[in-house]
């Protein structure tokens, strides 16, 4: 696969010096010997050339909970995702990293078909959740979303009590048994590490909590429905470092019982919390592998530049 991408290298020629995108300079000559130089990969992507994702073999051995097959997405005439193929391992945390606008969030929102809410979106390809197609005609989107939990960038608790926030997904399914609701509320709040802080104020408004607590409340809400996949869209970007730390601990605890797909801009966060990392650029999946490999031993120089902060 490395060879494949090497053959796709753009023809040499004077490349315009673009600040921030000229990734060759810092490494010219001083690169790790066994890694071939891919200085032109980003330019190649920008010019729309064909390009093969670099996949680490370790990722392919995992049991997949979510498979993304050659997925394309267009906003009107603009193509936002180019043939993304990705396999999310069961019970593991998969991080999506990449510069702003690379399609991480779009990919994430495609998993539970949130993009259906936007009129101009058109897709191609498919995804499978535990073997069930997500985009096949006739799929009940409502039922599908019940199998997937999602936490958004900004905490968005509903305008109701903490209790009602947590059991929202049960309420909309018509669950009325108080004991079931209370049990789910407690286990979800415990799962989200919010129980000790919230247990005495379950009937206060969810909006009365602090930002970090609100985000954990959203996580509790997401896991209350026992989702097969948990999607986290930059869950810490609106939080302070201490709240971020708590969420990261929480993600660590969720690992094993939930399969998590997380979008993050924070390299440390990706390296700390995830088992697998996917690096995206301009709508393409560039490199995908175990987090340790991506951060310590990436196969592409562009990936290394990005994760070490020399780019983007």
């Amino acid at each position: 696969m490395i060879e494949a991408s090497e053959t796709q290298r753009p023809s040499t020629g004077p490349t315009p010096a673009r600040p921030g995108l000229d990734v060759r300079r810092p490494h010219e000559g001083g690169a790790v010997p066994r890694r071939p130089r891919h200085g032109g990969l980003f330019e190649s992507i920008e010019q729309g050339r064909q390009f093969e994702t670099v996949r680490h073999e370790a990722a392919a051995r995992e049991d997949a909970v979510l498979e993304i097959d050659d997925f394309d997405l267009y906003y009107g005439a603009v193509r936002a995702l180019h043939g993304v193929s990705l396999v999310c391992p069961r019970g593991k945390v998969t991080a999506l990293i990449g510069p702003s606008g690379c399609g991480k969030s779009t990919l994430l929102r495609s998993v539970n078909r949130m993009n259906d809410l936007i009129d101009s979106v058109r897709i191609d390809g498919d995804m499978r959740l535990n073997g069930d197609s997500i985009y096949a005609p006739g799929v009940d989107v409502i039922q599908l979303r019940k199998r997937i939990g999602m936490v958004f960038q900004k905490p968005n608790p509903f305008p109701m009590s903490i209790f009602e926030n947590v059991v929202y997904s049960l309420r909309i399914d018509g669950e009325r048994d108080r004991s079931v609701l209370e049990e789910v509320c407690e286990s979800s709040l415990r799962g989200a590490g919010l129980w000790s802080e919230a247990k005495d104020r379950l009937h206060e408004s969810g909006l009365a909590l602090s930002g970090g607590q609100q985000q954990r409340l959203c996580i509790a809400r997401a896991i209350a429905a026992e989702p097969e996949v948990l999607l986290l869209d930059e869950p810490c970007s609106a939080l302070d470092p201490i709240a971020t730390g708590r969420i990261e601990e929480l993600i660590d605890e969720l690992k094993g019982s939930y399969s998590v797909l997380i979008v993050t801009h924070n390299m440390q966060q990706a390296s700390r919390t995830s088992d697998f990392t996917a690096f995206m650029y301009l709508g393409r999946l560039v490199e995908f592998g175990p987090t340790e490999d991506i951060f310590v031993n990436p196969r592409l120089k562009e990936t290394e530049d990005y994760v070490t902060g020399r780019f983007g």
């Binding site: 979303r145 997937i148 968005n156 608790p157 509903f158 997904s169 429905a225």
Partner: peptide, 12 residues
């Protein structure tokens, strides 16, 4: 964001 949160929970 509230509407999206609700849709993401599987609400109609």
């Amino acid at each position: 964001s509230m509407r999206e949160g609700s849709y993401a929970c599987g609400a109609t």
